[in-house]
Amino acid sequence: MGFKKWNRLLFLLVWYISGSFHKAAAQQTPVAQDFVVIGNDIGIKSVSSSGLTSIFRGKYSSWSNSQSAIIVLPSKKNPSAGLVALFLYKTSITGMQKFWLSQVFQGRSNAPSFLDSDEEIIDYVEKNPGAIGIIRKASVSSKLNPNRIILITN
């Protein structure tokens, strides 16, 4: 093993540590204000944080207006995925996948729609009545129909 090799290993170690710091800085506990919940014809205009968690944990299969509930979440390719997982499931993306694998496997819930970007989420919700999605506030754009926004109350 030569010097170059040791240098390469050292570089990787430094990169890993720096990355970890970066992640630690980015993974600060997200709050409701970081996210915008959108829904299409789901019978409600606002939802509490706990309610929101229950909804996104697949507790309801249909809305009060008898519309089937469709949960729309960011896929692991979506940059929002880690935050959403942390916010809603208090876990990582992998944890969220396990959660939903377990839910679907046991037949407790219908499988959510995982989309690769918030725009796709906005677009999906807009097109599918009963769908409820969560995006980062930073992803809000003009494409978002304001009527789709569900207020998160405390």
Partner: peptide
């Protein structure tokens, strides 16, 4: 499902 985040196949 894990690869594509699509759990309908499992179901």
């Amino acid at each position: 499902a894990l690869k594509n985040d699509d759990y309908d196949g499992v179901k």
